Amino acid sequence: MTLPPPPEQLVAVELEKLRGTMAEGFARVDGSLALLVQRGDQTDRQIADHDQRLDALERARWPLPSLAALVAVCGLVISLWQFANGS
C-alpha cells in the first residue's frame, strides 16, 4: 500500500496549477488588450483621414458663396444699366 503524498507536496501541486491558470488568464487578457489597442489605432487613423477629407471639402467649397455674390452683383449692375439705358 502506498502512502499519500505529504501535504506540502499537495500544496505545491495546487500552487503550480493555480500559477498555470493565472498565466493563461493573463495571456488572454494581454491578447484582448492588444486587440483593443490595435482597434483604437485604426479608429485614430480613420478619424485623421476623415478630418483631412473634411478640411479638403471645406477648402474647396469657400468660393461658391463668393461666386454667387459676384453673379448677383453682376446681375444687379446689368439690370440697372439696362434700366438706365431704357429710360
Rank of each mutant, 00 (worst) to 15 (best):
M1F: 11
M1N: 09
M1P: 00
M1G: 10
T2A: 13
T2I: 14
L3F: 09
P4C: 05
P4V: 04
P6Q: 07
P7K: 05
P7G: 02
E8S: 09
E8D: 14
E8T: 14
E8C: 01
E8H: 08
Q9I: 09
Q9V: 11
Q9W: 03
L10Y: 02
L10I: 11
V11M: 11
A12D: 08
A12N: 03
V13E: 10
V13I: 15
E14R: 06
L15R: 12
L15T: 11
K17E: 12
G20Y: 00
G20T: 02
T21C: 01
M22A: 13
M22T: 12
M22L: 15
A23R: 05
A23Y: 06
E24Y: 15
E24C: 14
G25H: 14
G25F: 06
F26S: 05
A27K: 13
A27P: 00
R28L: 13
R28N: 09
R28A: 13
R28Y: 06
V29P: 00
V29I: 13
D30W: 08
S32P: 01
L33S: 10
A34D: 09
L35M: 12
L35Y: 13
L35W: 14
L36F: 06
L36Q: 11
V37C: 03
Q38C: 00
Q38R: 09
Q38N: 14
R39N: 04
G40Y: 04
G40S: 15
G40M: 04
G40D: 06
D41W: 00
D41E: 13
Q42C: 07
T43P: 02
T43E: 04
D44I: 03
D44C: 03
D44F: 04
R45K: 12
Q46C: 02
I47C: 02
A48V: 04
D49K: 08
H50W: 05
H50T: 08
H50P: 02
D51S: 00
D51R: 08
Q52M: 08
Q52Y: 07
R53L: 08
R53W: 04
R53P: 02
L54V: 13
L54S: 13
L54N: 14
L54F: 13
D55Y: 03
D55G: 08
A56R: 05
E58V: 08
E58K: 10
E58T: 07
E58W: 01
R59G: 01
R59H: 11
W62L: 13
W62N: 07
W62P: 01
P63K: 00
P63W: 04
L64N: 07
L64D: 08
L64E: 14
P65I: 02
P65R: 02
S66V: 15
S66G: 14
L67P: 01
A68K: 06
A68L: 12
A69F: 03
L70Q: 11
L70H: 09
L70P: 00
V71R: 01
A72V: 10
A72H: 07
V73K: 00
C74K: 04
C74W: 05
C74I: 10
G75L: 12
G75V: 07
L76V: 14
V77C: 04
V77G: 02
S79A: 15
S79I: 05
S79E: 07
S79P: 00
S79K: 07
L80W: 05
L80H: 09
L80D: 05
W81R: 03
Q82R: 13
F83A: 10
A84V: 15
N85F: 12
G86A: 09
S87D: 08
S87I: 04
S87F: 08
